[in-house]
């Protein structure tokens, strides 16, 4: 059936869409809540967060947390650590995919393409996603809101002379040659226009 019909009046799902953009930098999956000091948590504290999450699910399933449940939690956690930390001993016995929790929340009705930014714009992953190599658990680093996008488009210079694609911008090339301008920003070639992202 239509998923929209499934949304009951008073549901938090649809309406929370409006505010979620700023709310997802670091949160606790077990309580569905934003943790203000998430960045400061140690590995042990994160372990507690995750184990609580798993035990909650176990209790929901079985009703009570028995010794078997405790074993399960430890096994799961070990499995997560093993799978996530050591590539050489990848465990192929894991049945089925792990359910991922989506960390990055993006505005609706916007089109975003990584290739445009990474392959063409030569941006580093860290520019938008932060120091992912140092994150124990990945979290949303940037707000990924429209204002944030627009601001970057205003400041960032296009790889204008390197990529032959941009040769069709003859006027800007002339100005660069004459020394009248040193760069062309994304904004100047239409990077703020609605239909660059919304269509």
């Amino acid at each position: 059936m239509n998923c929209h019909r499934a949304i009951k009046v008073g549901s938090t799902y649809g309406t929370a869409e409006l505010t979620k953009i700023f709310a997802s930098v670091g949160y606790d999956p077990s309580t569905d809540k934003y943790i203000p000091n998430y960045e400061d948590l140690s590995k042990d504290e994160i372990e507690q967060v995750y184990k609580k999450w798993i035990s909650d699910i176990y209790i929901t399933d079985k009703g009570t947390l028995d010794p078997m449940g405790e074993r399960t939690i430890n096994e799961q956690w070990d499995g997560i650590v093993e799978a996530l930390t050591d590539k050489k001993t990848r465990d192929f016995k894991i049945q089925g995919p792990i359910e991922w929790v989506r960390i990055h929340n993006l505005p609706d009705h916007a089109y975003f393409n990584h290739a445009q930014h990474v392959s063409v714009g030569k941006l580093e992953c860290q520019t938008c996603h932060g120091p992912v190599e140092a994150m124990e658990v990945v979290k949303q680093y940037s707000p990924l809101s429209m204002g944030w996008c627009i601001n970057c488009h205003r400041q960032t210079a296009v790889k204008f002379t390197e990529n032959p694609y941009y040769q069709s911008y003859a006027k800007f090339h002339k100005e660069i040659a004459k020394g009248e301008r040193d760069k062309v920003t994304v904004e100047e070639i239409g990077g703020l226009e609605c239909q660059k992202c919304h269509y």
């Binding site: 938090t12 309406t15 929370a16 979620k20 709310a23 949160y27 999956p29 995919p97 359910e99």
Partner: peptide, 21 residues
């Protein structure tokens, strides 16, 4: 009104995804 009240709170939905193995 109810919708506006809910919108004003700061809850976020948990979204899960099943990746390909």
């Amino acid at each position: 009104l109810g919708a506006a009240t809910i919108a004003a709170s700061c809850e976020i939905p948990v979204r899960k995804a099943i990746p390909y193995v």
